[in-house]
Design a protein around this nucleic acid. Structure first.
Length: 790
DNA sequence: AATTTAACTTAGAAGACCAGGC
DNA sequence: GCCTGGTCTTCTAAGTTAAATT
């Protein structure tokens, strides 16, 4: 145990080790040597440097504030002056763009005409659909901010802002009287507010959440609270979760779900269109006179909080939000949207330095939720663009940063060593910053918050990371690290540290980020993730040869994307149907294999000499054992039988459904026909079954006159194609089962890389970006060419 | 406090499959 | 035998909201 120095512990109750930064013995010869200075001096040094940091940041802040103010003033002046001119210019530009688009459209139409003669109707339909989409897009997305980039630095985010407020979830409608909570065997009545909460849980019976004891406890606590607030339950005092029986409620919701599912399509469409129409006006807002889309204009409905991982608050009641709790952010001269009848808005603000339209405070952890612009909006686009440009700027500093941290890995100052080591981890393993978390959040960590137990050291230089990261996604990696990093980690784990203690006891994200700022203003830990993700993507794309079909190229692109996703540890849960899906695919492949072999046997039976001509072609015949074949045949038959049954019940159902519309005579006739059909099928099946089984036994086939060698060979070829295809699909499915590609595509890979790939490899961008992403990344689609590099 | 990143849920689209018509 | 269009199934994208960073 090292002797603690001076009276430092007095003020801050930190464990001893966290205040120590020297004299740590290591087992290896190349041990960490404490700086050869007196303790006093060391302390001074430390204090000095710490003081300096504080002073520095203070100074910086002051000057920054001043500068900001000055800049702000200047900016406002300049912008108001310039704005008018810009506006004019913009109008000009827009009309020009419009004209250009018109011309484009016309030429497109003429080519379409030509094509339509050749192509099928359905294709034309698709094109029309696309065109419509384009038109809608044009309406919204006329403004191309990226052609006007100069007016986007500075604090001011907008000059005028109008919107229609938010949509509130519908009021609670009480359940039918018969649908009750059962308490201790007796149905009880609940005040509507409490019934609603009970219903939230009732709807979740059977889910993993509802089985989670913490979820149950939190739910029940809040349920009782609401019950008490509303006068309680007249029949019984509800105080034990285990006495509650939600099955009536569950059954009711289940039935409602079924009903909704069974709704005829037209009715569904009608409901949907109605909803869309009533929401239309909330979808758009007016920002600096331009129409822009709003993202989440709906206030979150009440429900049970579904915290991820082992969240201490999971299951708590997320309360209903009323207009009184909602603040709107609007331009000064914008009309205030009228609140729902009988209500008032909480607050009207006019803050043009922020990018939100409305906010409210939620009751789970008392944080703020915002209504923001859509992903295709100017403001989001601008910040996305800036994000990627910042990551690209890091390119010019990364060598220096790497050289520095390699050097500082051996620094005599503990804090420097920790900074260097952390930077190494962030740079190499793409860890997140790892801010401190409170007790009432899930226990997840990032770099700075890594603890003793999250890192296992295996000499000489293997490290096993095992911890829960964001969203409680497990980060597990066994990796080789730089020798010095290994030594450092060992030092950071040195006694008296024990499980539960911070590995980087001198660090938090702000310290780390301050260090990064010294290289490049605005450089933070997360920029490294963006940089390394995009860098990796660039490298991976560079490896892809420009050949093959479009689909093959897309597969290659996805493989590159997957590398990035793995780097960023973007995982997803294996979907529940996955196992079964793979199994089914395997069976399908097996079946096709069997069909192929069967065809080849037929070929041989037709012409024996074929075997001599191309022996290899027939080798696989012997690779299918009789037992397996029998199994396959039985399975094939089983499936067919099932299908026939299903088909019958379906048609019967349909007929019964239409019963009212038909005369008795008609109905009778039709059901007779159905039965007849069923009988016929059964007979046919029996025959087929007999034949296939016999074939499997004897390998003798009944040849039909229409068969020719060429035709069968063609069929074999087709099957082969399908088999390789299905195999590929299965591999893709397996490879992607636990990896989420979209997160990196949406957030980390510079979209211009995707655009570059699209142009260079002649892959339509629609194959790589969904409609939403095409809109979000419109700036990239227009600005990158085939030669663009990250 | 404000913004970005993230996985989960769900609704609807795409694809597989099949029957019936040419 | 091939095409087409309807139906069922599977997959995906959009939407939602939790959980990070700064």
């Amino acid at each position: 145990m090292p002797v603690s120095t001076s009276g430092e512990e007095d003020d801050v109750p930190l464990p001893v080790f966290s205040r120590r930064r020297h004299t740590i013995k290591t087992e290896d010869d190349d041990e960490y040597v404490a700086p050869k200075v007196s303790r006093k001096r060391e302390e001074k040094e430390k204090n000095d440097s710490e003081d300096e940091i504080v002073l520095y940041s203070k100074r910086k802040r002051q000057s920054k504030d001043k500068g900001d103010k000055r800049r702000k003033l200047k900016k406002v002046k300049k912008e108001t002056k310039v704005r008018e001119g810009v506006k004019e210019k913009r109008v000009e530009k827009e009309s020009k763009v419009k004209k250009e688009k018109k011309v484009k459209k016309e030429s497109k139409e003429s080519t379409m005409k030509k094509e339509s003669k050749v192509k099928k109707e359905s294709k034309v339909k698709k094109e029309i659909k696309l065109k419509k989409e384009e038109q809608i897009k044009e309406e919204v997305d006329l403004y191309k901010w990226w052609e006007n980039q100069d007016d986007f630095d500075g604090e001011i985010k907008w000059h005028t802002l109008e919107h229609h407020g938010v949509i509130f979830p519908p009021e609670y409608k009480t359940l039918p009287k018969s649908v009750r909570l059962i308490y201790g065997g007796e149905p009880v009545s609940l005040p509507p507010a409490a019934e609603e909460v009970a219903g939230f849980f009732g709807a979740m019976i059977g889910t993993e959440n509802a089985k989670n004891p913490v979820f149950q406890k939190n739910f029940f606590h809040d349920f009782i609270e609401v019950l008490k607030e509303n006068g309680g339950c007249p029949e019984a005092e509800i105080k034990e979760f285990d006495k509650c029986d939600f099955s009536k409620m569950y059954a009711y919701f289940e039935k409602e779900r079924e009903k909704k599912k069974a709704l005829p399509p037209q009715e569904r469409k009608r409901v949907r269109d109605e909803r869309l129409k009533s929401e239309e006006k909330y979808k758009y807002c007016l920002l600096d006179g331009r129409k822009e889309q709003v993202g989440n204009f709906r206030i979150e409905p009440p429900g049970l909080f579904r915290g991820r991982g082992a969240h201490p608050k999971t299951g708590k009641l997320k309360r209903r939000v009323y207009p009184e709790q909602v603040s709107l952010n609007l331009g000064k001269s914008a009309p205030v949207p009228s609140p729902p009848r009988g209500h008032k808005w909480g607050e009207i603000r006019h803050d043009n330095t922020v990018a939100w339209l409305a906010m409210w405070r939620e009751n789970i952890s008392n944080s703020v939720k915002y209504v923001r612009f859509a992903n295709n909006s100017t403001l989001k686009g601008v910040s996305d663009f800036k994000k990627f440009e910042k990551a690209r700027a890091l390119k010019n500093y990364i060598d220096a940063i790497r050289t520095d941290y390699r050097k500082k890995l051996k620094s005599r100052l503990m804090i420097e060593r920790q900074i260097a080591t952390a930077t190494y981890l962030i740079d190499v393993f793409a860890l997140r910053a790892g801010g401190e978390k409170s007790e009432d959040e899930a226990d997840t960590v990032g770099c700075c918050s890594l603890r003793y137990e999250h890192v296992f050291l295996k000499p000489p230089n293997v490290v096993i990371f095992d911890f829960l990261g964001k969203d409680s996604v497990r980060f597990y990696q066994e990796v080789e690290v730089d020798m010095q990093v290994f030594k450092n980690l060992r030092i950071f784990k040195k006694e008296p540290k024990k499980p539960g203690d911070d590995l980087f006891d001198r660090l938090d994200p702000s310290i780390l980020n301050k260090y990064f700022h010294s290289y490049l203003p605005g450089l933070t830990a997360k920029v490294f993730r963006t940089y390394n993700a995009s860098k990796t993507m660039q490298e991976q794309l560079d490896l892809i040869p420009n050949k093959g079909t479009v689909n093959e190229k897309v597969v290659q692109f996805n493989a590159a994307n997957r590398e990035v996703a793995i780097l960023c540890n973007h995982q997803r849960n294996v979907s529940k149907g996955f196992e079964a899906g793979v199994q089914k695919m395997n069976e399908k492949i097996e079946e096709m294999q069997w069909r192929k072999i069967r065809l080849k046997r037929i070929l041989l039976q037709m012409e024996k000499k074929l075997k001599k001509k191309k022996g290899d072609y027939f080798v696989e015949i012997d690779e299918l054992s009789k037992e397996t074949e029998k199994e396959i045949v039985e399975r094939v038959l089983e499936n067919e039988k099932e299908r026939d049954e299903k088909r019958y019940t379906r048609e019967k159902q349909k007929l019964d459904w239409d019963k009212k519309k038909l005369s008795k005579e008609e109905y009778k006739q039709k059901s007779e026909a159905l039965k007849e059909d069923r009988k016929k099928r059964a007979e046919k099946f029996k025959e087929k079954s007999k034949q296939l089984k016999a074939e499997a036994r004897s390998h003798k086939y009944e040849l039909k006159g229409s068969m020719t060698v060429e035709k069968i060979e063609k069929q074999v070829e087709k099957l082969e194609e399908r088999i390789t295809n299905t195999n590929l699909q299965r591999k893709d499915k397996e490879d992607n089962s636990t990896v989420a590609l979209s997160t990196s595509k949406v957030n980390y890979i510079d979209p211009r890389l995707t655009v570059m790939f699209s142009k260079k490899f002649d892959v339509p961008i629609e194959k790589l970006f969904t409609k939403a992403l095409r809109e979000k990344f419109a700036w990239a689609i227009e600005s990158a060419d085939a030669e663009w590099r990250f």
